[in-house]
Measured scan of single mutants.
Amino acid sequence: TGYYDVLGVKPDASDNELKKAYRKMALKFHPDKNPDGAEQFKQISQAYEVLSDEKKRQIYDQ
């Protein structure tokens, strides 16, 4: 599964769309709200870390 799929956004998503999707998913799977969501929360955080950084995103998109 790709990072875009993890966040539920298209590859041409804007920074604002990425942030909005990340916040929505992070709230849904945060371990405090969803004890079984810890692994998914890590994936969401990693996806956002890469896609929100312009240089990392360019490398990922290659």
Rank of each mutant, 00 (worst) to 15 (best):
M25V: 05
L27D: 15
S14F: 02
Q62M: 12
K20E: 15
D12E: 06
A38N: 07
D5H: 09
S52V: 07
Q62V: 07
S52Y: 05
I44Y: 03
Q58Y: 12
D12M: 04
I59M: 11
A13V: 10
M25N: 07
D32A: 11
A38T: 06
S45H: 12
V50K: 04
R23N: 13
E39M: 07
V9W: 01
S14D: 11
K24L: 12
V6N: 00
K33E: 07
G2D: 14
Y48D: 02
A47N: 01
A47C: 03
T1G: 12
P11W: 11
K10M: 10
A26K: 10
V6E: 02
L18G: 00
Y3H: 03
L27H: 10
A38P: 03
L51T: 04
L18V: 09
K20G: 06
Y4V: 01
Q43F: 11
S45F: 10
A21M: 02
L27G: 11
Y3I: 04
L18K: 00
Y48I: 02
D53I: 03
Q40E: 08
D53K: 09
D36E: 13
L51S: 00
T1R: 13
T1F: 15
Q43D: 06
Q62D: 08
K28Y: 11
K20R: 13
A47E: 02
Q43A: 13
V9E: 00
L51M: 01
F29G: 02
S14W: 02
Q40T: 09
F29M: 03
E17R: 00
I59Y: 09
K33Y: 14
P31A: 07
K19G: 06
D32V: 06
K24P: 00
E54L: 13
Q43Y: 11
S52K: 08
F41C: 07
R23C: 15
E17G: 02
A13E: 00
K33W: 12
P11N: 08
E39I: 08
K19N: 07
K42N: 09
G8E: 08
Y4P: 02
S45Y: 10
T1K: 12
K33L: 15
K42W: 10
Q62K: 10
K42R: 13
Q62Y: 07
Y3K: 00
A47R: 00
P31S: 08
Y60K: 03
R57A: 05
D12Y: 07
P31I: 06
Y3R: 01
D15Q: 15
K42E: 09
P31H: 07
V6M: 11
P35A: 07
D5T: 08
L27V: 11
K42H: 11
K20C: 14
N34E: 04
Y22K: 03
S14H: 03
Q46C: 12
A26E: 11
K19I: 08
A26T: 08
F41L: 05
Q46A: 11
V6Q: 05
D53T: 04
D32H: 06
P35H: 06
K19R: 14
Q40M: 15
K24R: 12
S45D: 06
A21S: 01
M25P: 05
E54C: 14
V9H: 00
K24C: 14
A13L: 01
Y4C: 04
D12K: 04
Q62S: 11
I44F: 03
K55C: 14
V9P: 02
F29I: 04
D53Y: 03
